[in-house]
């Protein structure tokens, strides 16, 4: 800054402009200037908060498609029977096609230990308390599980009907599980998940004789949030519906 007049130019220059008033110059020191605050600016963005995850999921989807690997994301509440269904699924499918599983849980590898020995590679993701898997979690296991050739990758998401629905993993199909003990109105209580589900598997159907389960009400509720949803009714215990389910999985995109 010019010390003679405080004009903001380099110090050696001709003073063609009037000098600052003496009061501002004080005892020969540069006057302190207070700059007006920079004007604020409004910036329109319109960007999805999860755009980064969506981009990673799109990478996963492309990577899998290039190798002919199908991926499904299974989402449900804790205790709805995902792991039991997967044990029965692997027993039926692993002889026909190459299957691998990624299991997400906040803590423990109990589910992975249950699923091993059924003919599929299994990887446990312990999310350290987080309530969902994201595309990066899946990406970390893709090369190891699918790089050597694979037909179907099943992701057993963290048991939760809310958060996992928001995170695209790169799956071909998102499948919600709903057990008959949970009540017919779950689709209305958790519409975000059921709205995004390509198929809904109703589990534990062997328990229906012991429950006040209103099948028609459940199906009507599902159709209110996802009018064209595919519904598959199963029991991992008796084997009911398992053929429909495994055929659906084997043919999933």
């Amino acid at each position: 800054m010019c010390e003679t007049c405080g004009c903001g130019e380099a110090s050696a220059h001709v003073h063609a402009h009037p000098l600052a008033p003496p009061s501002a110059l004080g005892s020969g020191q540069a006057p302190t200037l207070t700059l007006p605050p920079a004007p604020s600016r409004h910036i329109e963005l319109g960007r999805a908060v999860l755009a980064d995850n969506d981009a990673r999921a799109a990478d996963n989807r492309r990577w899998l498609a290039e190798r002919g690997v199908r991926m499904v994301d299974l989402i449900s509440s804790p205790g709805s029977g995902k792991t039991a269904l997967l044990e029965a699924t692997l027993d039926a499918l692993a002889a026909r096609i190459r299957v691998a599983i990624i299991v997400g849980d906040p803590e423990t590898d109990n589910d992975a230990r249950r699923l091993r020995g059924h003919g599929a590679e299994v990887r446990q993701v312990e999310t350290a308390g987080a309530c969902h898997l994201d595309a990066a979690h899946v990406r970390r296991h893709l090369v190891e599980l699918a790089g050597g050739g694979l037909d179907l990758l099943i992701v057993e998401n963290v048991g939760n009907l809310v958060c996992p629905a928001a995170f695209d993993l790169g799956q071909g199909r998102r499948i919600a599980l709903l057990s008959v003990t949970e009540g017919e109105d779950k689709p209305l209580k958790y519409p975000a998940l059921f709205h995004r589900a390509d198929a809904v598997v109703i589990t534990k159907c062997d328990l229906i004789p012991h429950l006040r389960w209103d099948r028609a009400a459940c199906l009507a509720n599902l159709r209110r949030v996802r009018p064209d949803v595919r519904v598959i009714e199963v029991s991992a215990w008796t084997g009911q519906g398992l053929e429909d389910w495994t055929d659906y999985l084997a043919g999933a995109p």
């Binding site: 600016r41 409004h42 910036i43 329109e44 963005l45 999805a48 209305l188 709205h195 209110r224 009018p227």
Partner: peptide, 28 residues
Amino acid sequence: ALLVCAVCQSGAVEVRGGRDLVIASMEV
């Protein structure tokens, strides 16, 4: 969150907005 047309009550509706959390704008 019900997917029903407010005019004719049909369930044959497409969702064209309201699905995401979006950063609309910022003031800097």
